[in-house]
């Protein structure tokens, strides 16, 4: 009997996982090429390293470059943040018109490890945000991105994170503009931004 309830739970969990996977697989796929057809306004309300709640509204009038990641990520996140840092350097006197934001998808651990130390090591302009689990999920949902914790007994803390590695560009009016897929060179991001300024 106990085995049977366990089986039911496992089937429900498996079905939920399949549905969630299908949703993220088909949902954001259209964003890149059909941005005009899918206008939406992503939003976040998340704490910065000093505990102040920062929201998308306060950045109206600026372009937002948003990346979701985690600071224990050795490969993908440093690569993207380095590109963002290069873009900010190369924007020169226009740097004030863009705000790069790093949103932690591993907020509890990142707050403990130190969020500001991490983002500032790449570029002082990058704002690191780490909210509660629920706030983070809400932000990810509004950007239509996916992340999940993956068990990995070999990793520190016993887990690692799988996530959408794109960089998202939000316009001064708050509307989604486009994503830069992982590995887009800084020069390409820069020229796209400059063409919009």
């Amino acid at each position: 009997m106990r085995l049977r309830s366990l089986q039911i739970i496992l089937w429900v969990a498996a079905t939920a996982a399949v549905l969630a996977f299908a949703a993220v697989r088909w949902w954001p796929a259209t964003d890149d090429t059909q941005a005009a057809a899918s206008v939406f306004t992503p939003a976040f309300a998340l704490a910065d390293s000093e505990g102040r709640i920062r929201t998308t509204e306060e950045f109206r009038g600026k372009f937002l470059l948003v990346f979701f990641g985690f600071t224990s990520c050795p490969d993908v996140c440093p690569t993207t943040l380095s590109e963002v840092a290069q873009v900010m350097d190369d924007l020169g006197s226009d740097a004030g018109s863009a705000q790069p934001v790093f949103i932690s998808i591993d907020p509890e651990r990142d707050r403990r490890l130190g969020l500001a130390d991490y983002t500032k090591a790449f570029h002082p302009a990058i704002l690191g945000l780490a909210g509660s689990e629920a706030e983070t999920q809400a932000a990810a949902a509004s950007f239509k991105i996916f992340y999940e914790r993956e068990a990995d007994t070999a990793s520190q803390g016993g887990y690692t994170m799988a996530h959408s590695p794109g960089l998202y560009l939000i316009g001064p009016d708050g509307a989604w503009l486009r994503q830069f897929t992982y590995g887009t060179p800084a020069a390409e991001i820069l020229s796209d931004l400059q063409s919009r300024l």
Binding site: R25, V76, E150, A162, S164, P165, G166
Partner: peptide, 19 residues
């Protein structure tokens, strides 16, 4: 203390890092 080999895999828009 614990060096390991990993591969960054981006599949269907999700990056993961399998051992």
């Amino acid at each position: 203390g614990m060096p390991m080999l990993h591969e960054t895999v981006v599949q269907d828009g999700i990056a993961s890092m399998p051992h």
